[in-house]
Amino acid sequence: MSEPLITVDLVDLDLPSDDRRTAVRALAERLVKAGRVTDIDLFLADIEAREAQMPTGLEGGIGIPHCRSAAVTVPSLAFGRSTDGVDFGAEDGPARLIFMIAAPEGGNTDHMTVLAALARRLVRKAFKNELLGATDAAHVADYVQKEVAG
């Protein structure tokens, strides 16, 4: 992979907790700044469309807003941690770890394999605990990148 899935610029350890849309927009803006999303409105619309099918909140305080979008240039992960939690529609309460997964439209299989590897990590307790306890954005980016690549 030429481009890592996540970089330090895509990590927000103090995500605004007001509501889901604010949190999602904050992460999306990071993707735009990093040049990975070309059109924030299109991208957010695609995210909302996926969210409308079924909320992406999962048990255990995780939210995974995600979509395939023509506005995405590189498969990317933006990670946010919220102290108070953001409601992603999970039955057991708000999400503290938010993984925004951005996939390009019609991406090839190699791209998608990376995202599949990421998705598999999300259900592992050790992965979650590492992220919950992290204090340094650079460390988070390194850790996730290593996990996914390995």
Partner: peptide, 10 residues
Amino acid sequence: CPTGIAHTYM
């Protein structure tokens, strides 16, 4: 899953 990038693998 509908998008085929997250829930399927989780």
